[in-house]
Design a protein around this nucleic acid. Structure first.
Lengths: 244, 244
DNA sequence: TAGTGGTCTAGACCACGCC
DNA sequence: GCGTGGTCTAGACCACTAC
């Protein structure tokens, strides 16, 4: 990169290149599934060495924003690829392998966000949100009741979809319809007693212990996108996580 | 690395170097907290370029087995360093910052492992284990009841310790007394109703919903080391996890 | 055969911590 | 000033994919 173009002399070159690449993905120039230019080409374009571009791409591959295919090229990651299908869905049967959930959307409403929802999403009081509730099955009776809250402005056209059009993997919907890519989530997990409504929907007795997950999903720029509350029966299923 | 010494021509050089470094840590030549030789020195020793050693170290730093200090050197990570204190302890108060738990050890016994314990630890039926139970407080009344199961052979001298000598951060004990470094954990999380014993120990009513975590802790070589069952009150606390 | 990512080298300069 | 890790370069060869 020519010194005359170097704006941020305090940040490493590869970090600047990485930011440029993320910006082009975020802006929509490179869509999920697209192949991006080769390392040598990007190196020429930005006037840096191929090794520096490689280092920038390395860190994006680590964060699963890009994926490499040897001999073919580097691609923008997509949530609907097999690898990512289960990535943010960490509830599994106790016995047997992972199961893709079936989903029934119950309600889709627009309303003013509640205090704790807006606090989680870092939005000012009074902001309009879209509120979705749904029940999910995992190869059997219903085991998950879930509510999701998203910004009404950013996801306005969700209201135009029928309940059946709302995808099972809603992160895929964010990506395909709104260009919003979920990079990471923060979960807080509790044990609670089932409310009357939850008991009815999950066909259990009230006060049955339920796993309760408060999840915040963040996009590429670490902006909160969705606040979700998941209530899960853990008789035959569990929530899993790995630390390393 | 001279070609005559190259044993695994199918694996990349940097991966071989990484394996050598891990072996020297695992073997005890480099203890937690030690400084390892500089990149140039290791490069000379293994007869590879400094860049290759760097790539090997990079991946170990990512996995938190090593940590770099610019201008000083590269160090073997230690669980008692501030950075790692909370790393595998992911239960926090709902309000306020993280709190270091106080711990009271209840029992330390040697017995034959139960079926599900040995299955988790991948040990043959009939293996002897050490079983520890304890209660933990987080700046207030007790909120955690926990049982831990470890291999009796590997951790024999734990039986010689008094209950007070068993450290609050038991992974630190594994590291300091046995040279076992925990690299990662796999958690399965459930919601359950408190048993009579748990209710008594946590001073709550029986059937109160409790968070139940089944945790397997693995060492550097991905061998299961400890199986733990944690029961946690989530009135004022929560279990947290991040996916990315 | 041509282009891509994957690995590896040798050497350069910088920023930091320490003496 | 010296040694450390941190960044960057220019070029090499390999393995894989596609034509």
């Amino acid at each position: 990169m020519k010194s005359s173009q170097t704006i941020f002399n305090d940040t490493p070159l590869y970090a600047q290149i990485r930011a440029f690449i993320v910006a082009r993905m975020h802006h929509g120039e490179w869509q999920p599934g697209d192949r991006i230019p080769g390392e040598t080409e990007l190196a020429k374009e930005y006037e840096v060495s191929q090794g520096t571009v490689r280092k920038a791409i390395d860190s994006l591959v680590e964060n699963r924003l890009l994926l490499r295919r040897q001999g073919k090229g580097t691609y923008v990651a997509s949530h609907n690829s097999e690898l990512k299908l289960f990535h943010f869905f960490n509830i599994s049967p106790n016995e047997g392998g992972r199961v893709l959930p079936e989903t029934k959307v119950l309600t889709v409403d627009k309303r003013t966000g509640l205090h704790h929802e807006l606090a989680a999403l870092e939005m000012p009081a009074g902001t309009e949100v879209i509120h979705i509730t749904r029940v999910r099955h995992l190869a059997g009776p219903p085991v998950i009741y879930e509510t999701m809250t998203i910004c009404a402005n950013r996801f306005k056209s969700v209201l135009d979809l029928t309940k059946k059009q709302i995808l099972n993997n809603i992160y895929e919907l964010y990506e395909q319809n709104f260009g919003v890519i979920i990079r990471r989530t923060k979960d807080k997990v509790y044990a609670v007693a089932a409310s009357a409504l939850q008991a009815q929907l999950l066909d259990i007795e009230a006060s049955t212990p339920l796993l309760c997950v408060h999840r915040l999903a963040l996009d590429l720029e670490d902006t909160p996108v969705e606040y979700r509350e998941t209530f899960c029966l853990t008789q035959n299923h569990h929530y899993h996580s790995r630390l390393s």
